[in-house]
Design a protein around this nucleic acid. Structure first.
Lengths: 233, 233
DNA sequence: GGTACGATAGAACAACGTTCGATGCGATGC
DNA sequence: GCATCGCATCGAACGTTGTTCTATCGTACC
């Protein structure tokens, strides 16, 4: 049981796919309605074929998701490789991380499958490499370099999990948007006892209507300054 | 349709639960075999009751998972509150974050449901507050405090997602343990072209057999030194 | 023109979350 | 003591999901 690229085109009754088209439609489904929307039946219908045919290209759903995520990472890797190099590796790391984060903002489902299986996620591995190459320009040990890149990936993923969460039922119904949801939670927090929750009261106005990008940028900056200090620059 | 605590004890044929017992057994299932093991049928069997009864206590599976996660956070919050205070808020933040991370290491399934719905996750909100209270001792703006705690939570969650991933089929079969899995991935990496992947080759020995705790500690330290610099101490 | 094989697909299966309707049980009112 | 009422429980069913089995199509090759 191997799989292979099929020549494009095909008959009228029988559908003829290709790895490319399968992943393309899978990503389209994920983009349209998130991870729950990607089912084998929905995908088969979009491809105009049968359900079992998809199993010719992927072993199971996990592999489908890993491959779809990596497929979406292709353009991101290309963008990162296109980025101009400055003379400060930390500046380069910053813009790379932001590029990666932006991609996840536009495709929140990515956060769950990013860097899960580098054996088949070649683009993702490429991104990991490109991030790491910047640390090669810094005065660090191999261990510090490994941990630095892990930390950066962790910051991106950690900030992105909020985005990756499936919207609540209310948000899907369209009754309520993100700002209103945030506002409700903020109101809950304001109702808490100020004696017992002084911090929550201190920051509730910041939380209400906050921007995820700002949040990520702050976290990224903390890690980057820590890294700069470690490199002794 | 409200729900309520039932008095303990019960008949022979009909089972009698309580919110406590439901969450207790749910956590037990999660501990034993991870998130996929927590099904309503398995949970009902453990409680010696019917499937539909569980819906008296929780609205759906999402709520069950949120509540189970928060239930598991109870002792963690207690531990954090018991922690002695030093005169350095950053030191306190460090030990708090480590306490939290350790809890997730022992219960990897926690990472996916941590801080998802603070309206019903009271213990989790308490942890958020305790972390934040340390930033109140530092010279920061409200915005900086909010972002600092978000960053710390992000580091914990970001480092923990690796742990939260369900083991591969091979690992479940028991054919292969974590070290061997890491070793295989490392071998894949060593087979890559050194010209194209200089960084991967630089750190592959660090990756092979690495400790997740070390990885987390390094990431945490970077964020904390960044934070210390920001507070101008 | 037959054959081997890459590729497709319908139907079935088991498991899951969830809902429905009926039923048991314990306290309350008389 | 008995009927009532509402909390709590449960079996059975429904729709959907991932996955597998088996049969078939179509094309390149000898």
């Amino acid at each position: 049981m191997t799989r292979q690229q099929s020549r494009s085109g095909g008959g009228r009754r029988r559908a003829s796919h290709s790895m490319e088209s399968v992943l393309e439609e899978a990503v389209a489904l994920l983009d349209e309605a998130g991870a729950p929307a990607l089912t084998f039946r929905a995908l088969a219908q979009r491809l105009g074929g049968g359900v079992a045919s998809i199993y010719w290209y992927v072993a199971n759903k996990d592999e489908l998701l890993d491959l779809a995520a990596d497929h979406a990472m292709g353009p991101v890797l290309a963008d990162v490789e296109k980025l101009p190099r400055s003379d400060d590796p930390i500046d380069d790391l910053r813009v790379m991380a932001i590029t990666l984060f932006d991609a996840i903002v536009q495709r929140p489902w990515l956060s769950a499958y990013f860097m899960r299986n580098t054996s088949i996620q070649t683009h993702t591995l490429g991104l990991y490499e490109k991030l790491g190459q910047q640390t090669l320009r810094m005065n660090l040990t191999a261990s510090q370099r490994f941990h630095a890149v892990s930390a950066l990936v962790g910051v991106v993923v950690g900030s992105a999990v909020d985005l990756g969460q499936e919207p609540t039922q209310e948000m899907l119904d369209g009754n309520v948007d993100r700002d209103e949801y945030l506002h409700r939670v903020a109101q809950d927090w304001r109702d808490l006892d100020p004696q017992e929750f002084p911090f929550v009261h201190e920051i509730v106005d910041e939380f209400d209507g906050h921007d995820d990008v700002d949040q990520f940028r702050s976290a990224l900056e903390l890690t980057l300054t820590g890294l700069r200090l470690q490199a002794g620059a």
